[in-house]
Protein backbone atom coordinates (compact mmCIF):
# COMPACT_ATOMS: atom_id res chain seq x y z
CA UNK A 1 0.00 0.00 0.00
CA UNK A 2 2.82 2.31 -0.82
CA UNK A 3 1.42 4.30 -3.65
CA UNK A 4 1.72 8.01 -3.58
CA UNK A 5 2.77 8.04 -7.22
CA UNK A 6 -0.79 7.67 -8.47
CA UNK A 7 -1.70 10.30 -11.09
CA UNK A 8 -4.86 11.22 -9.26
CA UNK A 9 -3.21 12.06 -5.96
CA UNK A 10 -2.70 15.77 -6.88
CA UNK A 11 -6.33 15.96 -7.91
CA UNK A 12 -7.47 14.48 -4.63
CA UNK A 13 -5.36 17.03 -2.81
CA UNK A 14 -6.80 19.83 -4.93
CA UNK A 15 -10.41 18.77 -4.36
CA UNK A 16 -9.50 18.41 -0.70
CA UNK A 17 -8.90 22.14 -0.67
CA UNK A 18 -12.45 22.72 -1.80
CA UNK A 19 -14.07 20.12 0.41
CA UNK A 20 -12.16 20.33 3.66
CA UNK A 21 -11.57 17.13 5.61
CA UNK A 22 -13.51 14.89 3.27
CA UNK A 23 -10.67 13.02 1.64
CA UNK A 24 -12.29 9.60 1.96
CA UNK A 25 -15.56 10.68 0.36
CA UNK A 26 -13.64 12.53 -2.36
CA UNK A 27 -11.69 9.38 -3.16
CA UNK A 28 -14.85 7.31 -3.25
CA UNK A 29 -16.56 9.79 -5.57
CA UNK A 30 -13.48 9.77 -7.76
CA UNK A 31 -13.44 5.99 -7.79
CA UNK A 32 -17.06 6.08 -8.90
CA UNK A 33 -16.14 8.43 -11.73
CA UNK A 34 -13.19 6.26 -12.79
CA UNK A 35 -15.37 3.16 -12.73
CA UNK A 36 -17.90 4.89 -15.02
CA UNK A 37 -20.55 4.76 -12.34
CA UNK A 38 -23.10 7.26 -11.17
CA UNK A 39 -23.22 8.68 -7.74
CA UNK A 40 -26.09 9.22 -5.35
CA UNK A 41 -25.42 11.68 -2.56
CA UNK A 42 -27.74 11.53 0.36
CA UNK A 43 -27.35 14.29 2.83
CA UNK A 44 -28.64 17.50 4.27
CA UNK A 45 -28.55 20.65 2.19
CA UNK A 46 -25.41 22.69 2.55
CA UNK A 47 -23.00 19.83 3.20
CA UNK A 48 -21.06 20.38 0.00
CA UNK A 49 -22.77 18.12 -2.50
CA UNK A 50 -22.71 20.71 -5.26
CA UNK A 51 -19.14 21.65 -4.47
CA UNK A 52 -18.07 18.03 -4.76
CA UNK A 53 -19.81 17.58 -8.09
CA UNK A 54 -18.40 20.77 -9.49
CA UNK A 55 -14.91 20.11 -8.22
CA UNK A 56 -14.90 16.65 -9.80
CA UNK A 57 -16.04 18.11 -13.10
CA UNK A 58 -13.45 20.90 -13.04
CA UNK A 59 -10.72 18.58 -11.93
CA UNK A 60 -10.88 16.81 -15.25
CA UNK A 61 -11.93 19.84 -17.22
CA UNK A 62 -15.41 18.47 -17.81
CA UNK A 63 -18.44 20.62 -18.36
CA UNK A 64 -20.91 20.66 -15.53
CA UNK A 65 -24.57 21.42 -15.21
CA UNK A 66 -27.01 21.42 -12.41
CA UNK A 67 -30.71 20.73 -12.55
CA UNK A 68 -33.00 21.20 -9.62
CA UNK A 69 -35.60 18.49 -9.82
CA UNK A 70 -39.08 19.66 -9.00
CA UNK A 71 -42.38 17.90 -9.15
CA UNK A 72 -43.33 19.61 -12.42
CA UNK A 73 -40.08 18.87 -14.21
CA UNK A 74 -40.80 17.05 -17.46
CA UNK A 75 -38.57 14.55 -19.23
CA UNK A 76 -38.16 16.97 -22.12
CA UNK A 77 -36.79 19.55 -19.74
CA UNK A 78 -33.88 17.16 -19.21
CA UNK A 79 -33.33 15.62 -22.59
CA UNK A 80 -34.04 18.67 -24.73
CA UNK A 81 -36.48 18.82 -27.60
CA UNK A 82 -36.86 19.27 -31.33
CA UNK A 83 -37.79 22.79 -32.34
CA UNK A 84 -39.06 23.58 -35.81
CA UNK A 85 -36.89 25.97 -37.74
CA UNK A 86 -39.41 27.64 -40.04
CA UNK A 87 -36.71 29.16 -42.25
CA UNK A 88 -35.16 25.81 -43.05
CA UNK A 89 -38.40 23.81 -42.60
CA UNK A 90 -36.49 21.47 -40.40
CA UNK A 91 -36.61 20.28 -36.81
CA UNK A 92 -33.53 21.20 -34.85
CA UNK A 93 -32.60 19.25 -31.74
CA UNK A 94 -31.93 21.50 -28.80
CA UNK A 95 -30.13 19.36 -26.25
CA UNK A 96 -31.22 19.65 -22.65
CA UNK A 97 -29.03 19.78 -19.56
CA UNK A 98 -28.57 16.01 -19.78
CA UNK A 99 -26.01 16.63 -22.48
CA UNK A 100 -23.23 17.56 -20.16
CA UNK A 101 -20.34 15.53 -18.88
CA UNK A 102 -21.17 15.97 -15.24
CA UNK A 103 -24.81 16.47 -14.30
CA UNK A 104 -25.84 17.35 -10.81
CA UNK A 105 -29.46 16.24 -10.35
CA UNK A 106 -30.53 18.02 -7.22
CA UNK A 107 -33.21 16.44 -5.07
CA UNK A 108 -33.96 13.76 -7.59
CA UNK A 109 -36.69 12.31 -5.42
CA UNK A 110 -38.87 15.37 -5.81
CA UNK A 111 -39.40 14.83 -9.53
CA UNK A 112 -42.16 12.65 -10.87
CA UNK A 113 -41.33 9.02 -11.45
CA UNK A 114 -41.59 9.62 -15.18
CA UNK A 115 -38.83 12.18 -15.17
CA UNK A 116 -36.71 10.08 -12.86
CA UNK A 117 -37.05 7.18 -15.18
CA UNK A 118 -36.02 9.29 -18.19
CA UNK A 119 -32.87 10.30 -16.37
CA UNK A 120 -32.09 6.81 -15.25
CA UNK A 121 -32.58 5.39 -18.71
CA UNK A 122 -30.16 7.91 -20.08
CA UNK A 123 -27.72 6.92 -17.31
CA UNK A 124 -28.00 3.28 -18.20
CA UNK A 125 -27.81 3.51 -21.96
CA UNK A 126 -25.53 6.48 -22.53
CA UNK A 127 -27.88 7.83 -25.17
CA UNK A 128 -31.15 9.73 -25.36
CA UNK A 129 -33.95 9.19 -27.86
CA UNK A 130 -36.11 12.14 -28.79
CA UNK A 131 -38.85 11.70 -31.37
CA UNK A 132 -37.30 8.53 -32.67
CA UNK A 133 -33.81 9.93 -33.12
CA UNK A 134 -31.21 8.79 -30.71
CA UNK A 135 -28.58 11.20 -29.58
CA UNK A 136 -25.41 9.96 -27.90
CA UNK A 137 -24.56 11.49 -24.59
CA UNK A 138 -21.12 12.96 -24.15
CA UNK A 139 -18.22 10.85 -22.93
CA UNK A 140 -17.50 10.69 -20.05
CA UNK A 141 -20.91 11.06 -18.51
CA UNK A 142 -21.42 11.19 -14.75
CA UNK A 143 -24.63 11.85 -12.94
CA UNK A 144 -24.41 12.99 -9.37
CA UNK A 145 -27.87 12.88 -7.90
CA UNK A 146 -28.71 14.15 -4.47
CA UNK A 147 -31.63 13.34 -2.34
CA UNK A 148 -32.66 14.80 0.91
CA UNK A 149 -32.62 12.03 3.38
CA UNK A 150 -34.94 13.74 5.84
CA UNK A 151 -37.33 14.90 3.20
CA UNK A 152 -38.36 11.63 1.66
CA UNK A 153 -41.89 11.60 3.02
CA UNK A 154 -43.65 13.92 0.59
CA UNK A 155 -41.81 12.91 -2.51
CA UNK A 156 -41.30 10.01 -4.86
CA UNK A 157 -38.52 7.93 -3.44
CA UNK A 158 -36.44 6.07 -5.96
CA UNK A 159 -37.55 2.47 -6.37
CA UNK A 160 -35.05 -0.30 -5.77
CA UNK A 161 -34.67 -1.04 -9.45
CA UNK A 162 -33.50 2.50 -10.07
CA UNK A 163 -31.31 2.68 -7.04
CA UNK A 164 -29.45 -0.24 -8.56
CA UNK A 165 -28.35 2.06 -11.42
CA UNK A 166 -26.31 4.19 -9.05
CA UNK A 167 -22.94 2.68 -8.46
CA UNK A 168 -22.50 4.33 -5.09
CA UNK A 169 -24.48 6.08 -2.46
CA UNK A 170 -22.45 8.43 -0.31
CA UNK A 171 -23.10 10.43 2.80
CA UNK A 172 -20.87 13.45 3.02
CA UNK A 173 -21.71 14.13 6.61
CA UNK A 174 -20.75 17.08 8.71
CA UNK A 175 -17.13 18.18 8.59
CA UNK A 176 -14.84 17.63 11.53
CA UNK A 177 -14.46 20.53 13.93
CA UNK A 178 -11.04 21.55 12.66
CA UNK A 179 -12.16 21.39 9.05
CA UNK A 180 -15.21 23.46 9.84
CA UNK A 181 -13.03 26.02 11.63
CA UNK A 182 -10.88 26.30 8.53
CA UNK A 183 -14.05 26.67 6.47
CA UNK A 184 -15.25 29.47 8.71
CA UNK A 185 -11.90 31.13 8.42
CA UNK A 186 -12.39 31.20 4.69
CA UNK A 187 -9.57 28.86 3.87
CA UNK A 188 -11.64 26.72 1.55
CA UNK A 189 -11.29 27.33 -2.15
CA UNK A 190 -14.33 27.79 -4.32
CA UNK A 191 -14.88 24.98 -6.78
CA UNK A 192 -14.46 27.47 -9.60
CA UNK A 193 -10.99 28.30 -8.35
CA UNK A 194 -9.81 24.71 -8.56
CA UNK A 195 -6.60 24.33 -10.50
CA UNK A 196 -5.93 21.08 -12.29
CA UNK A 197 -3.93 20.08 -15.33
CA UNK A 198 -5.99 17.02 -16.09
CA UNK A 199 -8.15 16.84 -19.18
CA UNK A 200 -11.10 14.67 -20.23
CA UNK A 201 -8.57 12.59 -22.16
CA UNK A 202 -6.80 11.86 -18.93
CA UNK A 203 -10.04 10.73 -17.41
CA UNK A 204 -10.74 8.41 -20.32
CA UNK A 205 -7.26 6.98 -20.08
CA UNK A 206 -7.74 6.37 -16.37
CA UNK A 207 -11.10 4.77 -17.00
CA UNK A 208 -9.42 2.43 -19.48
CA UNK A 209 -6.71 1.68 -16.98
CA UNK A 210 -9.24 0.76 -14.29
CA UNK A 211 -10.51 -2.04 -16.46
CA UNK A 212 -7.08 -3.56 -16.70
CA UNK A 213 -6.49 -3.74 -12.94
CA UNK A 214 -5.90 -7.39 -12.14
CA UNK A 215 -8.53 -9.26 -10.16
CA UNK A 216 -7.15 -12.69 -9.23
CA UNK A 217 -9.28 -15.84 -8.93
CA UNK A 218 -8.91 -15.63 -5.15
CA UNK A 219 -10.33 -12.13 -5.21
CA UNK A 220 -13.20 -13.13 -7.47
CA UNK A 221 -13.89 -15.90 -4.99
CA UNK A 222 -14.15 -13.28 -2.30
CA UNK A 223 -16.58 -11.16 -4.29
CA UNK A 224 -18.60 -14.25 -5.16
CA UNK A 225 -18.68 -15.25 -1.51
CA UNK A 226 -19.97 -11.83 -0.56
CA UNK A 227 -22.69 -12.01 -3.21
CA UNK A 228 -23.64 -15.52 -2.17
CA UNK A 229 -23.83 -14.57 1.49
CA UNK A 230 -26.11 -11.65 0.67
CA UNK A 231 -28.45 -14.16 -0.99
CA UNK A 232 -28.55 -16.53 1.98
CA UNK A 233 -32.05 -16.95 3.24
CA UNK A 234 -32.65 -15.51 6.65
CA UNK A 235 -30.06 -12.77 6.25
CA UNK A 236 -31.48 -9.27 6.74
CA UNK A 237 -31.48 -7.08 3.66
CA UNK A 238 -32.19 -7.64 -0.02
CA UNK A 239 -29.98 -9.95 -2.08
CA UNK A 240 -27.31 -8.35 -4.25
CA UNK A 241 -27.88 -8.49 -8.00
CA UNK A 242 -25.27 -9.49 -10.56
CA UNK A 243 -25.12 -5.81 -11.52
CA UNK A 244 -24.21 -5.09 -7.92
CA UNK A 245 -21.37 -7.60 -8.25
CA UNK A 246 -20.12 -5.89 -11.41
CA UNK A 247 -20.33 -2.50 -9.72
CA UNK A 248 -18.52 -3.81 -6.67
CA UNK A 249 -15.66 -5.22 -8.70
CA UNK A 250 -15.39 -2.11 -10.90
CA UNK A 251 -15.38 0.20 -7.89
CA UNK A 252 -12.79 -1.99 -6.14
CA UNK A 253 -10.60 -1.83 -9.24
CA UNK A 254 -10.87 1.95 -9.32
CA UNK A 255 -10.11 2.12 -5.62
CA UNK A 256 -6.97 0.04 -5.99
CA UNK A 257 -5.88 2.19 -8.95
CA UNK A 258 -6.28 5.28 -6.78
CA UNK A 259 -4.17 3.50 -4.16
CA UNK A 260 -1.57 2.98 -6.90
CA UNK A 261 -1.80 -0.80 -7.20
CA UNK A 262 -2.19 -2.92 -10.30
CA UNK A 263 -4.20 -5.63 -8.58
CA UNK A 264 -7.23 -5.65 -6.34
CA UNK A 265 -6.93 -6.64 -2.70
CA UNK A 266 -9.79 -7.67 -0.46
CA UNK A 267 -9.19 -4.39 1.35
CA UNK A 268 -10.27 -2.54 -1.78
CA UNK A 269 -13.47 -4.53 -1.97
CA UNK A 270 -14.13 -3.82 1.67
CA UNK A 271 -13.45 -0.09 1.26
CA UNK A 272 -16.07 0.29 -1.47
CA UNK A 273 -18.52 -2.28 -0.15
CA UNK A 274 -20.59 0.06 1.99
CA UNK A 275 -21.07 2.83 -0.61
CA UNK A 276 -21.67 0.33 -3.40
CA UNK A 277 -23.86 -2.18 -1.65
CA UNK A 278 -25.61 -0.58 1.29
CA UNK A 279 -28.32 1.14 -0.76
CA UNK A 280 -28.92 -2.10 -2.65
CA UNK A 281 -29.14 -4.09 0.57
CA UNK A 282 -31.50 -1.74 2.40
CA UNK A 283 -33.67 -0.92 -0.60
CA UNK A 284 -33.26 2.80 -0.18
CA UNK A 285 -34.31 2.92 3.44
CA UNK A 286 -31.28 4.18 5.23
CA UNK A 287 -31.25 2.19 8.45
CA UNK A 288 -27.80 2.77 9.77
CA UNK A 289 -24.34 3.62 8.64
CA UNK A 290 -23.42 0.59 6.64
CA UNK A 291 -24.65 -1.92 9.20
CA UNK A 292 -25.89 -4.39 6.61
CA UNK A 293 -22.64 -4.28 4.65
CA UNK A 294 -20.60 -4.81 7.76
CA UNK A 295 -22.65 -7.85 8.68
CA UNK A 296 -22.11 -9.12 5.18
CA UNK A 297 -18.35 -8.73 5.60
CA UNK A 298 -18.44 -10.65 8.84
CA UNK A 299 -20.50 -13.39 7.27
CA UNK A 300 -18.09 -13.91 4.38
CA UNK A 301 -15.61 -15.02 7.05
CA UNK A 302 -12.11 -16.38 6.61
CA UNK A 303 -8.93 -14.40 6.51
CA UNK A 304 -8.65 -12.97 2.97
Amino acid sequence: MSAINSPVQPLIAAIGQVLLGKEHQVKLALACLLARGHLLLEDLPGTGKTSLAEALARGFGLNFRRVSFTSDLLPADLTGLNIFDSQRSHFDFHPGPLFSQVLLADEINRASPRTQSALLEAMANGRVSVDGTSHPLPEPFLVIATQNGLDQGGTSPLPESQLDRFMMRLNLGFPARESERALLQGQALKATELASELTPAHLQALQQQVQTVHASPALLDYVLDLLARSRDTGRPGLPLSPRAGLALLAAARAWSLIAGRDHVLPEDVQAVLTPVCEHRLDGGQSRGEGGLSRRLLGAAGGLR
Binding site: M1, L265, P266, E267, Q270, R294, L297, G298, A299, A300, G301, G302, L303, R304
Partner: peptide
Protein backbone atom coordinates in the same frame (compact mmCIF):
# COMPACT_ATOMS: atom_id res chain seq x y z
CA UNK B 1 -2.44 -18.52 12.22
CA UNK B 2 -1.98 -21.50 14.49
CA UNK B 3 1.11 -19.92 16.00
CA UNK B 4 -0.83 -16.71 16.51
CA UNK B 5 -3.78 -18.53 17.98
CA UNK B 6 -1.49 -20.06 20.57
CA UNK B 7 -0.73 -16.52 21.66
CA UNK B 8 -4.42 -15.70 21.73
CA UNK B 9 -4.54 -13.75 18.47
CA UNK B 10 -7.18 -14.99 16.06
CA UNK B 11 -8.61 -13.29 12.97
CA UNK B 12 -11.90 -11.54 13.44
CA UNK B 13 -14.80 -12.20 11.12
CA UNK B 14 -14.39 -10.26 7.89
CA UNK B 15 -10.84 -9.25 8.65
CA UNK B 16 -8.44 -9.11 5.74
CA UNK B 17 -4.88 -10.34 5.80
CA UNK B 18 -3.53 -6.80 5.76
CA UNK B 19 -5.68 -5.77 8.69
CA UNK B 20 -4.74 -8.85 10.64
Amino acid sequence: LRSCARGGLVPMPGETLGQF
